[in-house]
Design a protein around this nucleic acid. Structure first.
Lengths: 141, 141
DNA sequence: GTCCAGAATTGGACATAGTCCATTTCGGTC
DNA sequence: GACCGAAATGGACTATGTCCAATTCTGGAC
């Protein structure tokens, strides 16, 4: 996780900047991190960064496929650097905990609808909703 | 689609109000309607309704399982009255068009992850992302 | 080492989607 | 027709982003 980040950026034709490296580190260190948490983490590392730069960096990284954006209902967008393995997510309705779930198929799209209405599909996003063990134990907090 | 709406409300212990009936009608008439469009439709019917009442009515109807809320990434929440058949959705990345897809299984949850991390699952939400025929024909607009 | 062009960053205003709360009104019952 | 609790209202507020113009930085050429 050293200067690999730099080469990744360069290999996609992006400039290597301290802000982008810090954003990549934040996403890499904290799975399912939110934009706000990224901002905090980068500020800790660099002292300052504008909200704009964070969104911009995250947006570009997502565009380039370096990180993945997840936008579950009722929660701000989250980012993760586990890309390419097409895994899915499991979310607790009660505490919003988000857990990775491996995809049994492993390639995209891993599911095919009976009728695709002429669309050309590139991804099947699966979110499992349920209640996590902790929240099951303590139903109403 | 007559006074059925009224009985549905009563059967869940809710009061029957003009606002709620109008909201239900709006959702029923326009598949995948947004909160904003519901507000417009209800205003056309009743003359006036507060944004609050729309959100409140939609929220209660979702709570009671009378309608279903869909919150795809990058789009405001949408509502539909097709509940109970556990169908999925297909969205065009380019024009945001949203289409229903029947679930091959039909019962919830229709998918089971290899490892559920101790969660008790109640739903597997599937969103297929792709490009619709129109947008494929006209790539960049 | 200096300079340049384009890329990246910044900050401020703005947009969108939705929530909170105190008050008023309404639906259903007696 | 009066009453009570549920529902609706309106206004302020919050969270999460986006847009834009101006500035700064990066990497390469000289």
């Amino acid at each position: 996780m050293r200067q690999e980040f730099g080469s990744v950026l360069r290999s996609t034709g992006l400039q290597v900047t301290a802000q982008r490296l810090a954003v990549m580190r934040a996403v890499s260190n904290t799975p399912h991190i939110t934009a706000e948490a990224v901002t905090e983490a980068v500020r800790e590392e660099l002292g300052t960064i504008s909200r704009q730069s964070v969104y911009d960096a995250l947006g570009i990284l997502v565009d380039k496929g370096i990180i993945r954006r997840i936008q579950p209902a009722g929660s701000p967008a989250r980012y993760e650097d586990r890309v390419g393995d097409n895994h899915h997510h499991l979310i607790c309705r009660s505490c919003e905990r988000l857990v990775d779930i491996d995809c049994a198929v492993g390639e995209m799209p891993c599911l095919h609808p009976a009728d695709d209405h002429g669309f050309s599909l590139d991804e099947a996003e699966v979110i499992y909703w349920g209640t996590c063990p902790d929240c099951t134990a303590v139903p109403a907090t």
